[in-house]
Design a protein around this nucleic acid. Structure first.
Length: 827
RNA sequence: GCCGGGGUGGCGGAAUUGGCAGACGCAUCGGACUUAAAAUCCGAUGGGCCUUAGUGCCCGUGUGGGUUCGAGUCCCACCCCCGGCACCA
């Protein structure tokens, strides 16, 4: 065995060996328990970055650990290969997106292989491959059949930078999530998926996701934004129509002193027609329309409004209520109109104060009277209803129930659930995506492409000008087709699908990636699904994870899968930072993983990135830390190489370690301690940093044992070293494989059984008990581990130091924590 | 504003159920090896106090209070940082 560890030679050799022997291939095997571990597949930008290294290292540790535990592990990899950068490359550098993407995939695959990640590459998928997107299109057709895919004209977000529409989820602070360009509103006919049909399901099933981080579920809950209320119909004084409003506080209806319409509300024009306020209102509406979304709707901008000159009738009291138009009511939520209750809603309160509108208190705290004149802020807490006729004396909850029932019985209103969540806008005016499989026929209208004609392939001979429309919109050969229903000339849809559609079901395709008859064989997918451990960036908390959950539910409803949730456990890993900031080209703080692998090897890179921080937290890159990881691996290597010849001779599998002296028993204890700690950290806590530190402690213990003894117990030492490399195998797969091989074992270390710890070996004969006096540590005593409480107290009291403290004092209380401490309370 | 997460040495972090705060690593310092250096191995390393240098004392986990024999951990109030949502009726 070489004295120095030559990582280059070792890593390359074993990567090749693993591949040639299909070591990580997973096949359906009903006799073994399965474990499906998956990392979010990457967009093939062409090069790995440290974020990739982190997520794939985490996934690989889990995959290798679970294999050693005896599971049949599925650990696949693929490519989220559609997307804009490919098109931009085509425009800027005249490379076809198809070539650009496949070249990148080849390069990134090579890089992933050099990291030594244990993928079953036979299951590789790429969303841009017709064999894959055929089934994305097939899913679109199923959604269409169920009425869950529809085309509708709506006010949508348009990103001028990407020249396409975006889903709500892809707009962050009114800017495009991808390119940060400010989005503008456009009214366009677009394809939507009816994710709102699943809103309640998506919310309720969070309960099934016990092993998801709470914060991700909360983010999704906020995004879905469910609220229960009542839609109330207010008759209009002048028109023979009703004004519908949505409110979560129908109990405060007696305190409604005015109504507000959003500037874009369809009734505004009718309401002002002929009134003296008409001109002013129409000017106001026009003014609002000119402002952009941000300015008009931000809570910071001032609340402004105008009176329409018209009145509504309060259905409970028959009172006239003035109707206003104001900027603080949004057309996009509820009905675009509200009843304003300034006494009990802060926004209404602010507005009423500004325009001197009536503030009428209808809820009071039990112990205090409120009045509209003296109120300084809206009272939104629970309380007792007053000035509210049939509701007087009730608390808020009871009043809600009573008034809601009353309104439903009297046809005044009905209970409604409102969501913040909008339907998912999936069409994109881009080329490099999955074509939407529909055609437009003058006779038959929108006609879905028959399933047997799938895939609708992307044409390759298109022009990338970068100007104006999508290249597909100019691809006449692609566009002109015949209607599947009547055979007449028809036109193809030229929009493609949001790439989040592609990634919403890829985890199912991995279970049966080469099936050309069906999307997947349910027998196979049901064996593997759901994904036991999913790992990826927190940035997908809403987007990808919500869409994928929606698709899983839909696919379950189609009867194709048993699972209703795709991902059993979720690990949302933190970012990799350098100098406190996310690595980026513009900041010039990028560390290239390939340079690190070249300089230190993949095992070092993996070990460092797993050791530096717990996985869910951000990780600060440290060159010195990398050195440390490298140093540790070399320390292990030296240990093995120094003793390899002696250990080789031993039959470590059938060894009875007996008659250990004190130092030996101590090392033996460290061995089992490490096994216990690493197993628990990997299995339950997913804390790789502390798992690694436990292995380091074992290695330190081996070194100090060797320093301490004249002559080492080779059998014990062999066991210690063997255990060390077994525990280290998931983290540093190459070096441990090489040592394993050098020790004379034939098979791969990655096919070995994970070591078990022996509870007996963990036991100490003598333990240290901490002696506290009034809660402060004052002494320590070494005692037999099985000492009785009485004997322990006696020993503690007899200590010189304790005696000193006890002079002139009295022990009032003695607390004994078995095997840990004794606390004497003295006075 | 609302909802999460967090604040521990010079740094990354550990402390899993309320029981020795600072595991492990980095950095720094000292020693050994060496002609020398690197590498390696061994050791020290939260701050302060002292004619007693110890098996010593005091302080110390964002701040202030509290509960408890005992609090990084629980409770109350507050400050700061990060993330999400934000006129959602």
């Amino acid at each position: 065995m070489q004295e120095y560890y030559n990582f280059k030679d070792v890593e390359e050799r074993w990567q090749q060996h693993w591949e040639e022997n299909d070591l990580f291939e997973s096949t359906l095997n009903l006799d073994k328990p399965e474990y499906y571990t998956l990392e979010m597949f990457p967009y093939p930008s062409g090069n790995l970055h440290m974020g990739h290294v982190r997520v794939y290292s985490i996934g690989d540790v889990i995959a290798r650990f679970k294999r050693m535990q005896g599971y049949n592990v599925l650990h696949p990899m693929g490519w989220d290969a559609f997307g804009l950068p490919a098109e931009n490359a085509a425009i800027e550098r005249d490379i076809h997106p198809n070539n650009w993407t496949w070249d990148n995939i080849a390069n990134m695959k090579k890089q992933l292989e050099s990291l030594g990640i244990s993928y079953d590459w036979d299951r590789e998928v790429a969303t841009c491959h017709p064999d894959y997107y055929k089934w994305t299109q097939w899913l679109f057709l199923q959604l269409y059949k169920q009425g869950l895919a529809y085309k509708e004209a709506a006010s949508v977000n348009w990103c001028p930078g990407c020249e396409t529409v975006l889903a709500n989820e892809q707009v962050v602070n009114d800017a495009c999530e991808r390119c940060d360009t400010e989005v503008i509103e456009k009214n366009l006919a677009q394809w939507f998926f009816k994710i709102t049909d699943y809103a309640d399901d998506l919310l309720a099933d969070h309960e099934l996701l016990e092993e998801w981080p709470e914060r991700v579920k909360i983010m999704q809950r906020n995004w879905i934004g469910r609220s229960e209320g009542v839609e109330i119909k207010f008759p209009l004084e002048e028109l023979d129509e009703e004004l519908e409003v949505f409110t979560t506080r129908p109990d405060t209806i007696y305190g409604a002193t005015y109504m507000v319409l959003a500037p874009g509300h369809p009734l505004v024009k009718e309401l002002v027609a002929g009134n003296e306020e008409e001109e002013e209102v129409l000017n106001f509406v026009a003014e609002m329309e000119e402002k952009d979304e941000e300015e008009r709707t931000s809570p910071e901008s001032e609340k402004i409004g105008v009176f329409t000159g018209s009145y509504a009738i309060n259905p409970m009291t028959e009172e006239r209520i003035p109707i206003l138009v104001a900027n603080y009511v949004l057309m996009g939520y509820g009905t675009g109109a509200i009843m304003a209750v300034p006494a009990h809603d802060q926004r209404d309160f602010d507005f009423a104060k500004k325009y001197d509108l009536e503030i009428k208190v209808v809820v009071e705290p039990e112990d205090k009277d409120l009045s509209g004149e003296t109120l300084e802020e809206a009272y939104t807490e629970d309380g007792v209803l007053v000035n509210s006729d049939i509701l007087n004396g009730l608390d808020v909850e009871a009043a809600f129930e009573k008034i809601a029932n009353y309104m439903e019985e009297n046809n005044i209103g009905s209970r409604q659930v409102n969501y913040r969540l909008r339907d998912w806008l999936v069409s994109r005016q881009r080329y490099w995506g999955t074509p939407i499989p529909v055609v437009y026929c003058d006779e038959c209208g929108v006609v879905p492409v028959p399933e047997e004609e799938l895939p609708v392939e992307l044409p390759t001979d298109v022009k990338f000008t970068g100007a104006g429309e999508s290249p597909l919109a100019q691809a006449d050969d692609f566009i002109s087709t015949t209607c599947p229903e009547c055979g007449a000339n028809a036109k193809r849809e030229t929009d493609t699908m949001d790439t989040f559609v592609d990634s919403s079901w890829y985890f199912l395709r991995y279970t049966d990636p080469k099936n050309d008859e069906q999307i997947f064989d349910s027998k196979k997918s049901n064996y593997w699904m759901n994904v036991d451990q999913y790992i990826g960036g927190i940035e997908h908390a809403i987007l990808h994870l919500l869409y994928a959950r929606f698709f899983m539910k839909f696919i379950n409803d189609l009867g194709l899968a048993d699972a209703r949730e795709p991902f059993e456990k979720l690990l949302a890993q933190g970012m990799v930072l350098k100098d406190g900031a996310k690595m980026s080209k513009s900041k010039g703080n990028v560390v290239d993983p390939m340079e690190i692998i070249d300089k230190y090897g993949a095992d070092t890179a993996r070990l460092f990135i797993l050791f530096a921080a717990p996985p869910e937290k951000d990780l600060e890159w440290s060159d010195e830390g990398v050195e440390g990881a490298s140093r540790f691996l070399n320390r292990v290597w030296r240990l093995a190489s120094d003793y390899v010849e002696q250990i080789k001779e031993l039959d470590l599998d059938n060894l009875e370690l007996s008659d250990l002296d004190k130092k030996e028993a101590e090392l033996n204890r460290e061995i089992h301690q490490a096994i216990k700690k690493v197993s628990a950290d990997l299995d339950e806590r997913k804390n790789f940093n502390t798992a690694i530190s436990a292995v380091m402690e074992l290695v330190n213990a081996i070194y100090s044992y060797l320093n301490d003894v004249e002559e080492e117990n080779v059998e014990l030492l062999g066991t210690a070293i063997k255990t060390t490399i077994l525990l280290l195998a998931p983290f540093a797969p190459h070096m441990t494989e090489e040592i394993w091989f050098e020790l004379g074992y034939g098979d791969s270390i990655h096919q070995q059984e994970w070591p078990d710890y022996d509870e007996e070996a963990l036991k100490k004969d003598e333990i240290t008990i901490v002696v506290q006096i009034n809660g402060k540590v004052r002494d320590r005593v070494e005692v037999d581990a099985d000492i009785s409480e009485e004997d322990l107290k006696e020993i503690v009291l007899s200590q010189d130091k304790v005696q000193e403290y006890l002079e002139d004092k009295e022990v009032v209380k003695t607390i004994v924590v078995p095997k840990k401490l004794v606390n004497l309370v003295i006075k």
